[in-house]
Measured scan of single mutants.
Amino acid sequence: IEKFKLLAEKVEEIVAKNARAEIDYSDAPDEFRDPLMDTLMTDPVRLPSGTVMDRSIILRHLLNSPTDPFNRQMLTESMLEPVPELKEQIQAWMREKQSSDH
């Protein structure tokens, strides 16, 4: 029984630690959010139409349809242009958020 109590305490400790580690990014500025999924972008790319999306989301879309989801023009992965300035701004915002939450 004592071992179970210790195990339960350890589990509670881990759960509390994980809860502290989770950071809420739901208040991200609109320009940091993917327009299709409304999630925080981690690897922004510009489509030929000028729309900026997260790379993982547009690549997932391209698996089903080789088109720009906003104007239905033909689109391939090679046409995606990285946006390193925005990526750095997002990373800086995330770092600031992490340091203010801890």
Rank of each mutant, 00 (worst) to 15 (best):
I1T: 08
I1L: 06
I1M: 11
I1R: 08
E2K: 09
E2G: 06
E2A: 06
E2V: 06
E2D: 15
K3M: 06
K3Q: 05
K3T: 07
F4I: 11
F4V: 08
F4L: 14
F4C: 07
K5T: 07
K5N: 09
L6P: 12
L6R: 15
L6I: 10
L6H: 09
L6F: 12
L7F: 14
A8V: 09
A8P: 10
A8T: 10
E9Q: 07
E9A: 15
K10N: 13
K10I: 05
K10E: 13
V11G: 10
V11A: 09
V11L: 08
E12K: 12
E12A: 07
E12G: 07
I14M: 14
I14S: 10
I14F: 12
I14L: 14
V15E: 13
A16P: 08
A16T: 11
K17T: 13
N18D: 12
N18I: 09
N18S: 09
N18H: 09
A19T: 13
A19P: 10
A19G: 11
A19E: 13
R20L: 14
R20G: 11
R20P: 13
A21P: 12
A21V: 11
A21E: 14
A21T: 09
A21G: 06
E22G: 05
E22Q: 08
E22D: 08
I23R: 09
I23L: 13
D24H: 07
D24E: 15
Y25S: 14
Y25F: 11
Y25C: 12
S26N: 15
S26G: 13
D27H: 05
D27E: 12
D27N: 11
A28G: 14
A28P: 10
A28T: 14
A28S: 14
P29Q: 03
P29L: 06
E31V: 10
E31D: 12
E31A: 10
E31K: 06
F32Y: 11
F32V: 01
R33S: 05
R33I: 05
D34A: 00
P35R: 02
P35T: 03
P35A: 02
P35L: 05
P35S: 02
L36R: 01
L36P: 00
M37K: 02
M37V: 07
M37I: 04
D38A: 05
T39I: 07
T39A: 04
T39P: 01
L40M: 10
L40R: 02
L40Q: 03
M41R: 01
M41V: 03
M41L: 05
M41T: 00
M41K: 01
T42P: 04
T42A: 13
T42N: 15
T42I: 09
D43E: 13
D43N: 07
D43V: 03
D43H: 05
P44A: 01
P44S: 00
P44H: 00
P44R: 00
V45G: 01
V45E: 00
R46G: 04
R46S: 12
R46T: 05
L47M: 04
L47R: 01
L47V: 15
P48S: 03
P48A: 03
S49P: 03
S49C: 04
S49F: 15
S49A: 15
G50D: 03
T51A: 08
T51P: 15
T51S: 13
T51N: 12
V52F: 05
V52A: 05
V52I: 12
M53L: 15
M53V: 15
M53R: 01
M53I: 15
M53T: 15
D54Y: 00
D54V: 00
D54H: 03
D54N: 04
R55L: 04
R55H: 04
S56P: 08
S56C: 09
S56F: 03
S56T: 05
I57F: 13
I57T: 15
I57V: 13
I58L: 04
I58T: 03
I58V: 04
I58F: 01
I58S: 02
I58N: 02
L59M: 15
R60P: 02
H61P: 01
H61R: 01
H61L: 00
H61Y: 01
L62V: 03
L62P: 01
L63P: 03
L63V: 12
L63H: 11
N64H: 06
N64Y: 15
N64S: 06
N64K: 03
N64D: 04
S65P: 00
S65Y: 05
P66L: 10
P66T: 05
P66S: 09
T67I: 03
T67A: 02
T67N: 05
D68G: 00
D68E: 02
D68N: 15
P69T: 00
P69L: 00
P69A: 00
P69H: 00
F70Y: 15
F70S: 00
N71I: 00
N71D: 03
R72S: 02
R72L: 02
R72H: 02
Q73H: 03
Q73K: 08
Q73L: 11
M74T: 11
M74R: 11
M74K: 12
M74I: 10
M74V: 09
L75R: 01
L75Q: 01
T76N: 08
T76S: 09
T76P: 03
T76I: 06
E77K: 06
E77A: 05
E77D: 07
E77Q: 06
M79V: 04
M79L: 07
L80M: 04
E81D: 11
E81Q: 09
E81V: 14
P82S: 08
P82T: 09
P82R: 05
V83L: 14
V83G: 01
P84S: 13
P84Q: 07
P84R: 08
P84A: 11
E85G: 13
E85V: 13
E85D: 11
L86Q: 04
K87E: 08
K87N: 09
K87M: 14
K87Q: 15
E88K: 08
E88D: 11
E88A: 13
Q89K: 11
Q89E: 06
Q89L: 09
I90S: 02
I90V: 14
I90F: 03
I90L: 06
I90M: 00
I90N: 01
Q91H: 12
Q91R: 13
Q91L: 10
Q91E: 14
A92G: 12
A92V: 08
A92S: 15
A92D: 12
M94V: 14
M94I: 13
M94R: 15
E96K: 13
E96G: 11
E96A: 11
E96D: 10
E96V: 11
E96Q: 08
K97N: 15
K97R: 14
K97E: 15
Q98R: 15
Q98P: 12
S99G: 10
S99C: 08
S99I: 10
S99R: 08
S100G: 13
S100R: 06
S100T: 06
D101E: 08
D101Y: 06
D101N: 09
D101V: 07
D101A: 07
H102P: 11
H102Y: 10
H102R: 12
H102N: 11
